[in-house]
Amino acid sequence: MSTHTPVDPAAIARMANRKTAKAGRTVIFRIKRCDGPGKPSYWQDFKVQVPKNANVISCLQQIALSPVTTGGQPSTPVVWESGCLEEVCGSCTMVINGSVRQSCSCLIDDYAPSEGDTLTLEPMSKFPVVRDLWVDRARLFNNLKRVKAWVPIDGTYASGSGPKESPEDQETRYVLSTCMSCGCCLEACPQFNVEADESKWNTDFIGAHAISQARLFNMHETGKRLAAERLEALSGAGGVSDCGNAQNCVKVCPKRIPLTESIAAMGRAVVFHKVKQFFNR
């Protein structure tokens, strides 16, 4: 088994379906739609003839070509966010058959291998819906500001190279740095819940992704200069202490970032930070 096989045993079991799924079968797409913020949600079913190796994106594209529900009602193309379709941009994250993931890497053969199978698509539940499957993840990016997720360089003018780094440290940082801000860790987190009130964004739980980013930048020689500020943010309301250790984040992370290790590492750092702060007062 390769190192990049999914962690979730259910996902491995689903992959076996690829061998048996027949091209050209009909799959029902049950889609939770919503016309806009504050409007009620409703379900619509669409029939799609699925070719081999099709993913959710290509099926949504097919629906857009002629959007007619299974009941024969003319409808509108489904609205959703998408980008790279290679699972590196994080755009097309949605809830598929009840759990969160990117829809581009979601092969229909895995989930609905037989004629007449149903696949349900829902928007992420932890962010306000914009329309249909598109949600507003602004809060996620705001949380990166809370932990000052950047290296405070002097400026962009040439002033020599960066610090040397051991291959081990590089490998650790690289993995953390592959976080694409998709929000899977937040969607699956029981401690992170929908918050439309922007004034609470800076005191609600910050989520695994931002905690992990704080760790990433605290590891960098120059990034460290802001370590105290990051730890201060993480020690406050909505910080690392608000993690409930359900550890769903690490299970659903499509990049297999060791988020729970980051949470523990930041937990330790915050303790040291606070103790130091207490004695230096």
Partner: peptide, 18 residues
């Protein structure tokens, strides 16, 4: 402040959380 979601994510860790 939390909201259980074991119905969707029935991982062992999540069950312990709940």
């Amino acid at each position: 402040q939390g909201k259980n979601n074991i119905a969707r994510y029935s991982y062992q860790g999540n069950k312990r959380y709940a």
